[in-house]
Write a protein that binds this DNA or RNA. Structure first.
Lengths: 223, 223
DNA sequence: GGTACTTTTAGTTTACTTTACACTAACTCT
DNA sequence: AGAGTTAGTGTAAAGTAAACTAAAAGTACC
């Protein structure tokens, strides 16, 4: 029951929290803001929703603008709408999270921002708006999802070794896994197929290179 | 990068999908619409977000208006924003789902709606907007959540028998569970405590009445 | 060219978890 | 008192998860 007519002076924004694993560290992309009152503060990239634009489309737009990559796993995280979250007025944010391999990404600093960087998820700087909460929710979702789906493919390049795969899982979970049990489970899942090739280069036995049989989200118990 | 200034003629609505289990059937509350072009169609109750109102508050307001109940489990489901979802214009809907016991609920038909009814989730009528999709996502989330949390308390009255609890789980999952294994797991979880009383009334051995030790969301494997 | 070094690869045993399954107990109604 | 109905209980078998050690295949160095 509306007591007063809703003027709906509410704006809709989309924020995209982009995650990767780089050098064995679970990281997220933050931009450094220029405008007050958040001058110098870090935040997830985002922007207002354009007319007739779908939120997911906006999230992809933001993703491409920041990384130059179009291929990434993208999922809606949730909507953050605390009336006090934005000092400029009532802005409701639909947050998405994206997962991508770190290989071949060149961060693009655009005019709008002072800087763009990958930050270890475990050591984030103070964030603008309610982005600390967004980060918390996103990391929890990703960790959980790793356990009951095969999303991890979205963080790896086209081919990879079992050690690479295990390392990515360990980085996100923040704990070590048993190598033999890990290999057993992953191979038994039939999600991977061998490329026949192997990775040369180290002073050790070369590792077989695998690829994912299908890069589509499926529910599987992997860990 | 916005090509044109965002006029943001976008409106924000909140819809609340309310679920219960009644007579062993998993049901959801639908209202019948009066206004065209959805005249006669069924939909989840909802409405525009008021200024300075938090989405969750709006969801609670809608919940109370439809059922008279204030106590219910409430969780954000997701935001549905397909530009074509509402024929009246661009309306983005933040959807919530609620779980409540069916005992003591009196549905209130308000002026705004032609009718209000509980509908079996398995046999929904044609729905307005994209509410079919909302229903699908909500039911999937509830079923999944039943497996790794204790949300089921939100569907039961203060005291209940183990048979009641099992019946509610079965109704939502849509499959039968083994009585002895179910009792074993539930009792081992330490989530329940006995009230000491038992349920009289049937022409059979009376069943012990239990209550939940804590009515707070926790992660537990129950099924 | 041989030896030391490093990482990959593979299988078994043990503990635990899950599933399947059938009878007795307690009460009501006639 | 007997028939009918639901509540309440344990055990064995199968499957899943966890712990654990040694050989294979390459490179680097001498």
């Amino acid at each position: 029951m509306a007591k007063h007519l809703s003027t709906q002076d509410i704006k809709l924004a989309v924020d995209t929290a982009i995650f990767t694993v780089q050098d064995g560290v679970f990281k997220t992309l933050l931009i450094q803001m220029k405008k007050k009152p958040f001058e110098g503060r870090w935040a997830f990239p985002g922007g207002l929703l354009e007319d007739d634009e779908a939120c997911e489309g906006a999230a992809r737009r933001i993703l491409a603008a920041a990384t130059g990559m179009k291929e990434a796993y993208l999922e809606q995280l949730g909507t953050f709408d605390d009336p006090g979250r934005d000092p400029f007025g009532r802005v409701v944010s639909v947050a998405y999270f994206a997962l991508m391999p770190s290989e071949g990404v060149e961060l693009r600093t655009v005019e709008k921002y002072a800087d763009v960087r990958w930050w270890p998820v475990a050591e984030l700087p103070p964030l603008a708006y309610d982005h600390r909460e967004v980060a918390r929710v996103a990391a929890a979702r990703i960790r959980a999802k790793l356990g009951y789906t095969n999303v991890v493919w979205s963080l790896l390049p086209k081919t990879f070794t079992l050690a690479d795969l295990q390392s990515v899982c360990e980085s996100i979970l923040g704990r070590r896994l048993d190598k033999r049990n890990f290999r057993k489970k992953v191979l038994a899942s039939k999600l991977l197929e061998s490329t026949g090739k192997s990775e040369k280069g180290g002073a050790h036995r070369p590792a077989e290179l695998f690829r994912f049989a299908a890069r589509r989200l499926a529910h599987v118990v992997l860990l």
